[in-house]
Amino acid sequence: MTRVLLAKPGLDGHDKGIKVLATILRDAGCEVIYTGLHQTPQKIALAAVQEDVDVIGLSMLSGAHVDLSRDVIEQLREAGLGERPVIVGGNIPLRDVALLTGLGAAAVFPTGTSYEEIIGWFAALPTATS
């Protein structure tokens, strides 16, 4: 059983994509914890600790995805969850994809990525079959 934390860091309130993803992952058999809007990196890390999730998913459409992702990954590391995969979605220009994976993001799914591709990524996780 894969447990997923979905969060929106920062001040951007566009949550259509993350809400649709939440229902799609639920329908793919995941337990999805959605934190709601306006999360700080610290809040996301603390939620990930308490919920002991297998994956942390971030969605950002404000352009601040590089800085915010870096902070979330750093906070997760400090909270002892450095090995948990972080995935990033939203309005991510191609030039930033390598930047994000360089910071430690396990996968980047820019706007326009098919949900099939995202579900495929989850299906390949070791927790997917346990």
Binding site: R26, A28, G29, E31, V32, I33, Y34, G36, K43, E51
Partner: peptide
Amino acid sequence: MTGGALLGDRIRLAEHAT
């Protein structure tokens, strides 16, 4: 059907998040 779940109760406890 799928075993999946949407768990949304944290949102209402947001004031204690930190």
